[in-house]
Computed example of a mutant assay.
Amino acid sequence: MTGVAATTRATEIVLPGAVAPDGLQVRVRDLPAPARGQVVLRMEATGVSFAEQQMRLGKYYDQPPFPFVPGYDVVGTVVATGPGVDGVFPGARYAAVTKIGGWASHLVLDAADLVAVPPGVDPEAAETVLVNGVTAWQMLHRTARVAKGGTVVVLGANGGVGSTLVQLARHAGIKVIGTASARHHDAVLRLGATPVDYRDPALYDRIRALAPNGVDAVFDHVGGPGLKQSWALLRRGGTLVNYGSASQKGENGLGSMIALFGRLYAWNLLPNGRSATFYNLWAGKRNLPAFRARMSEDLTKLLRLVADGVLAPQIGGRFPLARAGEALALAESRTVLGKVVIVGQEDQP
């Protein structure tokens, strides 16, 4: 299990085009041996995020052309290393944010993108805080920079990012108002947020009643017409962080992004002390060393919070790789609490 690998046979889930979840395809192929600085990772857990839901429709900004293997993040065991790999050990468990490629039994990755998973942390638990966790962490601590004692609104507090955001904010001493369907209110309350029914026609009035002086940040993955009302919830000095457009799912990715950026830019010109921004996990990747260092730092903190019991993984469902289509369909139903996880086979080499 050291040095350059022998040929590795990989099972992959392929997104062939804009198909329904049951239109995903399975292929088996031989992976190339890892090149200098690369490893072969045996997947133990990957997951379904909003990105894959948009990619399925061909509407995710900057997605690759069809066909391709989706999978935004992955946890697994290194089974082989290429030359020039230092500090990454075969047999050890690592996590990585990949953007694509995670829905596979094995994949080749750059060793520099791996982050060690602490001993005792289950791969499925680690999976829930990768793209969801780093998104939540960076929006809260790097983008909005909400201080202890502040108040924030988390739209979709039952979702993968939202449920993590609630826990991180509460751990930082921040009050949270979280929207969710009524069936998830007890769970959102247990996470530490004050739940509000997102279907309530008076939703924003109810939030204002809970925070009459305004809030320090709103984390909005819904976008669309409601974005203006999220903006109106802010106090002076508050920040609106938009990180998705669930209300416009299926619309043209580039066109929607251009319209969104124009609106956020215009709001930032208003003399009211508020700010609005779009969070992009991949911002700054042109400076790859700095991007990797930031990603490693934040993921290491998140995985340590899981190991210490501060973050409770929220798993909305588990599916084997061969049933990835069912996993995608469940995630798209928007009925689950947390993240839908896809798991690998323990008997794979």
Rank of each mutant, 00 (worst) to 15 (best):
A116E: 14
D220Q: 09
D86E: 15
V306W: 01
P83M: 11
S230A: 14
F219S: 15
Q53Y: 09
S296E: 15
A327D: 08
A187H: 09
D186W: 03
G82F: 01
A169N: 00
V88E: 01
N272A: 08
I342S: 02
A51L: 11
P65C: 10
A144D: 09
A18G: 07
T135K: 00
A126E: 02
L281N: 03
G82T: 06
R199D: 13
G316S: 10
D205C: 06
A126C: 08
L305R: 05
L233A: 07
Q314W: 05
Q248C: 06
W137I: 07
L302A: 04
T7K: 09
R199S: 13
T98K: 00
S256M: 13
G250A: 09
I258P: 00
R42C: 03
G262F: 12
V343A: 03
M55G: 11
Q138N: 14
D197M: 08
R56Q: 15
G84C: 09
M43R: 03
R29K: 07
A283F: 14
A322F: 01
A45F: 01
V48L: 04
M139A: 10
L57I: 11
W137L: 07
H171N: 10
A20T: 15
D347N: 15
R93H: 03
D347Q: 13
G173M: 05
I342C: 03
D200Q: 07
G224V: 10
